[in-house]
Nucleic acid binder design. Sequence first.
DNA 1: AGCCTGACAGATA
DNA 2: GTATCTGCCAGGC
Length: 103
Amino acid sequence: MAHGAREEYVEQVLSVVERIPAGRVMTYGDVAEFLGKGGPRQVGWVMSHFGGAVPWWRVVRADGRPADCHAGEAIRRLRAEGTPFAGLASERVDMARARWDGA
DNA sequence: AGCCTGACAGATA
DNA sequence: GTATCTGCCAGGC
């Protein structure tokens, strides 16, 4: 389809994010690597424009911290669904326990 | 084409 | 711990 490449990529990114179980997270890089195309920045681009329809708070940066522009809201939602954090007062997700590979 | 920007990542100081 | 740089891929001008 025309300009379909972009929309198709958007669809694929959103479908992966949609499948992330509650209490788990994926990094931007993980999503891109799982799809086998694009990169962390492309996933970020998709989320910024179409992420509103999926559990966007389950996509975090590689260090376990949500993106800066919605950090507070994301952390609140992650805590609400029982996502493990690096510390009680930490704003970083415990990646060793919460990281999901997409399988 | 060139240049800047970005919900990123890794390395380095 | 923070600050900065480079690599990455795509969009907008």
